[in-house]
């Protein structure tokens, strides 16, 4: 009799295991979500750095030789895909990044391009729109950076 009173019934065990299971599943979802968020934040920092790096390089080109720099821009905008890091030169061809044109630094998940749009002919101002994009966990993330450089600044 005493043994019967002090043991658990099947329903009690099922409820306990169910609550414990829910707790663990919730815990796991939170952990997975926070890990994903941390990874995304980590990649955001790196992507921002790639964007800043390209922005600094384009500014350097502008400072070095304005005429050469504006020859890479047009009124409708020219797109360049920058795969190399550090950047050594203008890309050989114009156009969007292909699906596998990743920046050549691990993790190879970032695609980086810039659109250079000039204001008039002859140009006195160039708008630079930089985008660093990457895919993670089925989502596509991007870091846009926009800056304007002018001949006399």
């Amino acid at each position: 009799m005493k043994q019967s009173i002090q043991s658990f019934s099947l329903i009690e065990v099922i409820i306990f295991v169910g609550i414990l299971g829910m707790f663990f599943v919730t815990g796991m979802i939170v952990v997975v979500y926070s890990l994903q968020t941390m990874k995304v934040n980590q990649h955001k920092l790196i992507a921002t750095q790639y964007g800043e790096q390209l922005s600094a390089w384009l500014r350097a080109q502008k400072e070095a030789d304005w005429n050469s720099f504006v020859s890479h821009a047009s009124i409708v905008g020219i797109t360049y895909c920058f795969k190399d890091s550090p950047i050594s030169d203008w890309p050989v061809s114009q156009g969007d990044c292909g699906v596998a044109d990743y920046v050549n630094v691990s993790p190879n998940i970032f695609r980086r391009w810039a659109i250079l749009t000039s204001d008039s002919s002859p140009p006195t101002r160039v708008t630079i729109e930089i985008t660093v994009e990457w895919k993670e966990g089925g989502n596509t993330y991007s870091i846009p950076l926009a800056t304007v450089v002018s001949r006399f600044e």
């Binding site: 952990v31 926070s34 890990l35 941390m38 990874k39 934040n41 980590q42 920092l45 790196i46 921002t48 750095q49 800043e52 600094a56």
Partner: peptide, 26 residues
């Protein structure tokens, strides 16, 4: 799991620090 979270967090802190100091130098 705890170690994985800690490792990720440490990496973020390190990247932030490198980025902060690099930006300061620039």
């Amino acid at each position: 799991i705890f170690f994985l979270i800690l490792q990720q967090q440490i990496k973020i802190v390190r990247i932030s620090e490198v980025q902060r100091q690099g930006t300061f130098v620039v």
